[in-house]
Structure formats: C-alpha cells, structure tokens
C-alpha cells in the first residue's frame, strides 16, 4: 500500500512543475496550463486526505470530495474566462508572448 506521504510528495512535485511552467515559460497559454497543473496538485492532496481521514462509519470523508468538486467547477469557469481574455488580447495585439505585452510595465 502506498503511504499518505507518497501522495503528498507526488502532489508537491506536480505543484512545483506547474510553478515551473508559470515562472519559466513566456507563452500565455502555457502559463495557463501551468496554473491548471497547480490546481490539480491541490485536488490530489485533498483526495488523499479524504481517503486517509475515514469517518466513524469506515467510509472516505466525502466532504473533501465535495470540495474537490467545487474546485474543479471554479477551475472550469476560470479557464473559460481566462481564454476569452487571451483571445481578446490576441485580437488587440496579435501576440500571446508576455514579453511583447509591456504597456503597463514601469
């Protein structure tokens, strides 16, 4: 049986890879994909904790799974709005490269 710590380590690595995508890539779409990876890392650790903290009846903690359901819903809404913003930006400037979008840079 894998331990709880194994799942937490894997979830932390997934979060770190997503953070690497956000920090190191310059394409807005890839940055967005990195954000999705980070959200999924949080979901994975939540589900692992739900399975670890069984209730008095010996069932997994379904409250945590409901929270994961809410996170997935919010992430879907966020993707729709974010991609619409990227499309509007592309119409205006013909680029999705963050270094070409420095109008507000001090």
């Amino acid at each position: 049986m894998p331990l709880l710590g194994d799942y937490l380590i894997v979830s932390g690595f997934l979060f770190a890879i997503g953070l690497a995508g956000v920090l190191l890539r310059r394409n807005l779409l890839i940055i967005f994909m990195g954000l999705e990876l980070m959200l999924n890392a949080a979901n994975l650790s939540l589900v692992a904790f739900a399975r670890h903290g069984v209730t008095a009846f010996g069932a997994p903690d379904y409250n945590a799974q409901v929270l994961v359901f809410f996170i997935i819903t919010v992430a879907a809404a966020e993707v729709a709005v974010g991609l619409a913003i990227i499309v509007a930006l592309y119409r205006l400037r013909q680029t999705t490269h963050v270094e070409d979008l420095n109008r507000m840079k001090f």
């Binding site: 937490l8 690595f13 069984v54």
Partner: peptide, 19 residues
Amino acid sequence: IGQIVLSFPASGESFPALA
C-alpha cells in the same frame, strides 16, 4: 515541500481500511 511532508506526523501512515 520535502521538509514539510517529512516532518508531518501522519505522512508515514498507510491508508486505513474501509469498512
């Protein structure tokens, strides 16, 4: 992350069996 997970007391436990 490694430090936190290693120092977390429950991280060495396996998952309890379901009823």
